[in-house]
Each structure stands twice: as structure tokens, then as C-alpha cells.
Design a protein around this nucleic acid. Sequence first.
DNA 1: ACAAAAGTGTTTTGTATACACCCATGA
DNA 2: TCATGGGTGTATACAAAACACTTTTGT
Lengths: 296, 296
Amino acid sequence: MGIGNVSERRLQSPHVGVSVVILALGPGSDDASSASVDTDDGASSKTTSPVPRQAVPHRRLWMPLVRRTRQPYLGMWALPGEDVSADETLEHAACKALESTTALTPRYLEQLRAFGGPDRSQGGLPMVTVVYWAMVGRTETWTPDSIDDMRWFAEDELPELAFDHRQIVDYALRRLRTTIEYPDVVARLIGPTFTLRQLHGVVEAIAGQTVDLANFRRRILASGELEDTGEKIREGRQRPAAVYRYVPRAERDAASWTRGLFGDELHRINQELRLRRESDARAFDDPLSALVPHRG
Amino acid sequence: MGIGNVSERRLQSPHVGVSVVILALGPGSDDASSASVDTDDGASSKTTSPVPRQAVPHRRLWMPLVRRTRQPYLGMWALPGEDVSADETLEHAACKALESTTALTPRYLEQLRAFGGPDRSQGGLPMVTVVYWAMVGRTETWTPDSIDDMRWFAEDELPELAFDHRQIVDYALRRLRTTIEYPDVVARLIGPTFTLRQLHGVVEAIAGQTVDLANFRRRILASGELEDTGEKIREGRQRPAAVYRYVPRAERDAASWTRGLFGDELHRINQELRLRRESDARAFDDPLSALVPHRG
DNA sequence: ACAAAAGTGTTTTGTATACACCCATGA
DNA sequence: TCATGGGTGTATACAAAACACTTTTGT
């Protein structure tokens, strides 16, 4: 693979970064329980929602964007991202980006694709960006915490985005909409336990359209990957619903890394991240140790 | 995205490379038309096919591997690859890797995934490798051209591979086997025109099992993306078969970049590659011009 | 009792499969 | 005319969609 040929193009190697399309379930438009931050902060007018929409009967996907503080595309909205250093995994970098943007814990993380080429940097350094998508937060009682240069946007009311991030988002949503055909992904998106109605809400939001609840129920139960916990919970004020748990079937697990990482593995990575950060702080006095590969 | 923060970790950025899983349709085992190079070259014994298999009724996928000429994993088989320079697209680099290995023209090229992290280099430089898979060659009259440090292997008789390339190959095959559900991908894999039997052969080889020809015929025709050219061709000595052409349906095209690149686009990239190479040769005397982004 | 949500049954439609069958052609 | 591959018909099984319906609960 040409490692070691230091002469020619070696110094022209592109830099590596990650960006994350972070998704959470939020209200549809005209929803009474709306917690959306529609108060326009005093910023430039081009950041306001460009596409007026009529009422959406189901919930929608929301994603946080950050405002760029540098050229190029200064002041424009962009996907959260991080540089990747040689001693960390791509997933680590993605988790850092996640953490820097939202305090919610990720339920799912999957690599989407790498984007590269000289055309996409537009005046910045040439970058190869590995894009992940992540699913965070619970479906209920969701309050987007918008601060200074970060803000949540509904999937169909996005502002103009920096770089090729609009293409990336479109790609992510398309990929997401084919991914939800796997019952295990949907089930684990929502958390350890859930009612069928909650699950149904996720699917509708992702699919972007209403889905027959009765048929959904049958399909998801027929998959054999849901287990009745015996508990019951009342979402509204009416009849309590059965609470289910996702229970993986053996052979599936072997193929799971094909798709993405789930809550438990993510938790492990985040743990490791915290440890790493501490040792990084120590390494500040001893720069050499930072060059040593992490596992030593 | 942190571009411009040159201090801290900037110098620790991993290098970027591409690897390509190159696939071609070849004979199944016990096939009389076998053109496989089963003469063991005098190399080390660990390169011989490790898994003895019984006869496979359908054709199989074959892929070229290259022998490593450097540490780590010196002498071991690995996926063809290239370093990526800042002024080229990832697809360009992938095409270079393709070209350096086989003279066959690619029918399809799709990015699989980026692999990274400190664990995978094992003594080499930290690398983020963007892996592509490609489909080359025609289904008939296939002769693998094995030379010195390159050799074709059947998908189910691979030797031990360097780095994490075995995982990568497994991942590629899994992905390929889900991709063939798209009729357009299958159709365009084989070339501009083809008989249904040829197409059927591709699907069987990729699926790794026999597929009912009658039902396959119906399904693929029902997709509405195949057009009868009116021509007929005799493959064997019997009744001639109708020749079809792939004709894309409008809306599909918008989503096509979601998957991969096909022959025509690849042709364009290869053209561009050749031009680039010439200008690179010129730039040898004028190193500065190589730093200018290609589109200037 | 009523509203609202949980959960079930039933009919229809479409699609994948298995496999029997006919057709066209060259030897 | 027969073997071989090209191409079609058909019965069956299964999965998804549509939607009417019953049950359970709180007010």
C-alpha cells in the first residue's frame, strides 16, 4: 500500500475528520407539545427556517447544527465534527463530536460513508471526512437545548448548510430510511424497554409518513426479537400498554458490526474517552507520550 | 470542524489510503472451462488454497490479491491499495489501485466503508483506509492474468490476509449480497448489453447459490428497467437468446450516487486519471504546480 | 357511559417459489 | 428427431396492507 514512500506526495496527504448527523425524535409541526425553539435569535436572517410546511401528523426527526466560527463558510450552519488523531479510532472521534454538541446519550452510531476530494473543502484544507449518523435521546419529554452557536432543526426545515453538508444529510436520511427495515435497529434506537406505540412513533418519524399501527404491531412481533417484560405502563391517561424489551437472536449478533454500534458498546467507548482525556491532560507536560499508540 | 488549529494534534493526523476489493466472475469448482491458475508457484506453502471444497454448481467470484513487499506482513497477501493525495478524489485513488492490478475495465465501483483506528496498522503508520469494492470483466471467456506478486483467488478459497483485510473482504461480500437486490446494480455489473442467462449467472455467483432461472427472469423483467434490444445472440450452440439493455428510470438516477459509480462515469474518471498522470509527469520538473488543486 | 388508547380478526392484494410445460434451433 | 437451452403458465405459500372490530382503562 505504499507506506513508507516518503518522497513525492506523502506531505500532500489530506487531513482526516469526522462529522456526525445527530438525530432525535421531536414534535411534528402543529404539535401542541411543541418544544421547538422558534424564537429567532438575533442572528442573520438566512438562518430562519426556509420551508414553510403544513401540519405533519407524525413526529419528526430533529438534528443539532453548529455555527461555523471560521472561514470558509463563516457563520453558516454545519454538522458537528472533530479532527481525527492517529491514536484514536474513528468511533472515538465521532463520540467526541457527539459529546461536544449534546449531553444526550447516543442510542446508536453507524458509519455512513467517507467523503473526500479536492472540491469539497472550498478554501479550507483538503479533508477526508468520515461521516457517522447517531440517534440520541428518548422519545418523550424532549426539550432541545439550544445554546449560543448550536441549535436544533427539524429535518425538513433545515437552513442552508456549509460545505457539502446538505448532500451528506440527504444521504444520511436516505440511508436511515432503508435501515429501519431491520427490526433490531428500530427496537434498540429507543432504549432498553418501550411500548409498541413508542416504537411505532420512531418508525413514523423516520419513514416520514404514517404507518398502520396494527400491521406494524404484527410485523415487529413476528420478527421474534421482542420480549414482553410483563410490565405495563400508562403513556396517556387510558389503558396501560405492555412494555417490551429487545432480545437479540444468536446469529444476528455476528452480523451486527455490519451496521453500527448500540448503546452498550457506545457506553464503553465513552468510558474509554473519558480515561483518554485524563491521560491527555497528563501528556500535556510530556508531549512525547502522546505519540505512543494508545494500547502501548 | 477545527480546520486551522495547527498546534496540538495536527501533526498526529493519520494517513489516508484506499483499498479495493476487486471482484470478477470466474468458474465454480470442477468446472471444465476452468482457467484458474492452480499451478502452485514456488512460493511459500501458506499461499496455497487452504479450504478444499466440493463441486460448486454455479460460477464463483474471484478477486486479485497482491503480495506485500514491505513490513509489516511482508510476503503475505493483501488487498490492492493506494495512498490518497490531497488533490484527488477518493474515487480517483481507487481507480489507480484498480488499474495497477488488473487491465480489466471496472463495471462498478462503490465505497464500502472507512476503516481506522490505531489497532489496525500493527507496526505500520496509522492509516485510515477507505475501502471500495469493484466489479470488473465480462462473464465469458475469463482468463485470470496472474503475474509475479499478483494472483486471483476464489472467494471461498482465500489465503490468510494481511492487516484486517480478511474482515474487510467478509464485509464486502456481505454488502455485495444485499446490494444485488437492486436490479439496476446487477444489470449494469455485466456490461451494456447481455442475455438474461448471463445476468442470471452473475446473480448466482454473487448469491453463492443456485437461483431459479424462470423466477429470476420474471422478477428482473418486472422491474421495468430492462429493454429488449431486438438483437439475438447464441451463447452455446442452441436457440439464440434475446439481448437486453439496461435503461434507467428517471427518479432512480437521483438516488444512484447513494450506491456507486457505473461504467460510464468510471470511464470519465479513468480518462481524467490519464490526463492527470501526464500533467504529473510534467510537474516533476515544476513541483509547485502539483500543489495547485486540479480544477484550478 | 364515554372517550381514548390497546390490541385482535378478517379480507384482499401482491409477490416469491416450485416446477411443469411448450418453443426454437442446430446437430 | 432429439438434445439443449430459451421462454411461459400455473398452483401454492407467505407477507403486507386496509380497515372493521373488541377490549381495557380513567374520568
